[in-house]
Simulated scan of single mutants.
Amino acid sequence: MHWHIKGAMADAMARLKTSDVAGATAAIRQALAARTRGVGVQPTSKKVAADDDAGAPRLRRLGDILKTLGAQRATYRRFPPASDEATPAADEGDDRFVSRSHRSAAGLLNYKLYVPANLDRELALVVMLHGCTQDPDDFARGTQMNRLADEFGLIVAYPHQPRSGNAQGCWNWFDIRHQQAGSGEPAMLAALGQELAREFKITPGRVFAAGLSAGAAMAEVLAETHPTVFAAVGLHSGLPYRAAHDVISAFAAMKGNGKTAPCIGVQGRRKIIIHGTADATVSRSNGDALFERMRSQNPGSSVVMSEVRSGSRTATRQVLIGPAGEALAEYLLINGAGHAWSGGHRSGTFADPAGPDASREMITFFLR
């Protein structure tokens, strides 16, 4: 391996350790371009000296994943406009969709909050966790959860992960510092859920969390670390709890090679899992593992399967039924779907207009 390739790989490894996926990709591409021209390029960072023999095979695999991430983002960044599609809800300009902040012992958390027009009914709270590179406004546009809020009486909170917390705006689901109840992001998110439940007098058992990709993985962390706060979670293209412990193992988990830890939460928390068979960013095996984990945790349960059709898409629905006939978990595996919010609106990133409608599926499951 040429020296400039080695240096670039070391640079990429250093950047990955700080979650700078974009910087790692750029370093590798620069080095490969230089090798093609037959010239050397100095590494862009001097943070670490790589062990070339031990690191090279792993980094080649990571390079493949980085390319996949870039391709997926380009595919789902914006779908072409459709003239016959209804205009999305005016999120940023709506006086019922406001910016707020919450401070707890775990830290400061900025978020957007949507309050439905009619508050004279039993309300529920949904904490929506965006994916990497997204923000609350983007996620609200793509999922269209605010429209369902008016229909079902939902208070919807969209916490914001700043770039200071993660270079790509990802929730740090893979970091052991953010995988326990007492500190970090899970503690901040749980504190926000509890505070909003008190503010809007929401009945216990009607507080939920949902997310996409890294947001779904963090929602899974909440299910395991704060099961008494969140009665159910919605996991779209997510990963099992503690499938990774750092950035490198996170990439392995995304490929389906993660290791899962024993469940630590109490029995009874409910989960709806949604995944696409064509997801090249987070392997569908993670969805399979999430559902299988629920099955193993509830040995007296049974599974009912059915087929779902939405437009040109088909999906397989598996429902885990408890001894009393309650739906403990649901797994919607969508044929041909990639790494994007199913049934989402074109105005948001990582949103696939083809159904089924993931937002409605989650709310229906939560309120069942």
Rank of each mutant, 00 (worst) to 15 (best):
L367I: 13
A33C: 06
C263V: 13
Q144K: 08
I176G: 06
A24R: 01
Q318P: 04
A82F: 12
K112R: 15
N298H: 15
A24M: 05
Q297L: 15
I202T: 03
K112N: 11
Y111S: 07
G211M: 02
E361Y: 13
Y111I: 09
M218T: 11
S164F: 05
P323Q: 11
L196R: 02
E224P: 07
G300V: 07
V156A: 10
I248C: 07
A351N: 08
L192Q: 03
G258E: 08
Q179Y: 12
L66S: 02
S312M: 09
Q180M: 06
H4Y: 10
I334R: 02
S104I: 06
A90G: 12
G7R: 03
V233T: 15
D138Y: 00
R317Q: 15
A327C: 05
V39K: 06
G93P: 00
G63I: 01
N172W: 00
P356Y: 03
F350T: 01
A24P: 01
I272M: 09
K112W: 14
K271I: 14
F79T: 09
A327I: 10
L119N: 04
Q318K: 11
R147N: 13
P204V: 04
A278D: 15
L125K: 01
S104P: 09
A157M: 06
H178V: 01
V39A: 05
R309G: 03
V266L: 08
A33R: 10
M218G: 03
A278P: 06
A89N: 12
E224Y: 04
W171N: 00
R269A: 09
D120K: 15
Q168F: 07
T87A: 14
T277E: 13
G338W: 00
L290Y: 05
A354Q: 12
K67T: 08
T316Q: 13
M294T: 10
T44V: 08
M294C: 09
V282T: 02
A190G: 13
L16W: 11
G300K: 10
V207P: 00
G265F: 01
F97G: 02
G265T: 10
F174N: 01
L239K: 04
Q161C: 15
P262I: 08
L333D: 05
L367D: 00
G348P: 01
G234D: 07
R309T: 15
S249P: 06
T316A: 12
N146S: 09
H275T: 12
V21I: 15
S296T: 14
A82T: 14
G322N: 09
V282Q: 01
R269K: 09
V21Y: 10
D95A: 13
V115A: 07
D51T: 08
S249M: 03
V233Q: 04
A14P: 02
T87F: 12
G268V: 11
E220L: 00
R346G: 05
D94R: 07
I272S: 06
D91W: 13
Q134W: 10
A8I: 05
H345S: 05
A280V: 15
M188D: 03
P162N: 10
N110Q: 13
D20L: 04
L109F: 04
G142R: 00
I334L: 05
K67Q: 14
E326V: 10
A34E: 05
Q144P: 03
